[in-house]
Amino acid sequence: MLNLVELESRWLHYKIKSLVPYIIFSAILILIFILILKYFFVKQEIAIDNLDQTKKSQNNTMQKEVLSNITKPNSEIRLVTTEPNIKPIYTPESTKVLVPSMDFLEQMKNSSLPYYKNDEIQKASLKNHTGPKTLHTQDKVEEIVEEIILESTPLKENENEIVEEKSSKINIQRKNIRSDIDGIIRRFKKNNNPALSLFVARKYYELGDYNNAYNYALITNEINRDIESSWIIFAKSLVKLGKKKMAVKTLKEYTKHSQSSSANLLIDEIESGQFE
């Protein structure tokens, strides 16, 4: 009679023995696989670390730059922060940085000077207007827009008061407006707030002083290129000054990136002759 227990134990022993090479081979394969994975992970981590370090160093340099700018006077800060952020939106040649001509303000103090003596200067300024636009300054622009809203609310109240006064006492009102405008211009010279320059442009336009309205709208656009009403005043002033084509061209350039319905409406009105 066969000893089945012994035979089974011998078979089990044989089975384990025969499986050992496969187990070792599989274990080696798994080990190699794990090592390869680990190698790639480590490589990736090193790459990520390097990237983080470069980012950190970049951030540090940026922070340093910002800190150094903060320590400088306010006027200098404006120059440092705004200038590098100017990037073209419309055309490549628009990388030119526009520097608004503030001469007329000087001239305004003494007497009203003819602003449109030189057509070439005008054209050049218009060209520059249609061109430059900043993408980088988006945050900056938003901040400024907020400022406009905040600061423009009290202004609007004033405006209403002025309008009310205008309707009742015309002569006195005009004087007040002029003196108000001068006061606002003084304030504007101090802080360069586009809300103030826009207010001035609007008031000049209302008074029929289209040259000054054009100039202040131009200044406003120069400071902030996203104020729709500034562009509208600018174009309207041009139309009033007989520069219909230029007004349409300017508005069209503006609508290319702003999708402004008011600007489009005004273009239609100018072109159809409804607005003259």
């Binding site: 009679m1 066969l2 089945l4 035979l7 089974e8 011998r10 078979w11 044989y14 089975k15």
Partner: peptide
């Protein structure tokens, strides 16, 4: 031997298993 020791139920008698062939080869 499985049958005589009443352990045949442990095996599948429908086909010859590799285990039994290996056991026979060891034997």
């Amino acid at each position: 031997a499985y049958k005589e020791t009443h352990q045949l139920s442990k095996l599948n008698t429908n086909y010859v298993s590799s285990k039994l062939i290996e056991m026979a080869a060891i034997q």
